[in-house]
Nucleic acid binder design. Sequence first.
DNA 1: GCCAACGTTGGC
DNA 2: GCCAACGTTGGC
Length: 154
Amino acid sequence: MTRYWIFKSEPYEFSISNLAECLITRWDGIRNYQARNFIREMNVDDVVYFYHSNCKVPGIYGKMTVITPSYSDPTANDKDSKYFDKKAANLNSWLSVDVMYKDKYKEPLTLHSIKQLALGDSPLTSKGNRLSIIPLTDEQYELIEREINTLNDL
DNA sequence: GCCAACGTTGGC
DNA sequence: GCCAACGTTGGC
């Protein structure tokens, strides 16, 4: 069963353009239990939208796919990593997946536009949302995908 | 830069 | 186990 997700990143840290260059990256440094539990549910070929947060125009800027099952996030136990967690209980305290670049949109789907869609309840559009990994229902995915395709003549 | 919302921490 | 204080996220 293919599932659909949104991953957030601050573009100053890592952007869709960075991913378009390196093509494959490990999505690591997630240090929130709810987000970690979502990573655990991921499967190869899951579809992920790349969301730019904390920037001038927040929104969905591209697409990627999950290319590995979840695995222990090596940065949690790496003293030299900025994501080092000295309290991490064990190797599986935190999880990563690898993702592969798929698309970078000429016209991003802005948060403003997303709020016009009838997504229903989602951490994406609720106030004060800080969740960096957000699951989408099939219906939410369809709405978003259709809007992006319209915007980009896909 | 402001500040609301939320997760985490730590004293009790 | 409660909850106030604190730190961080992220839209505006």
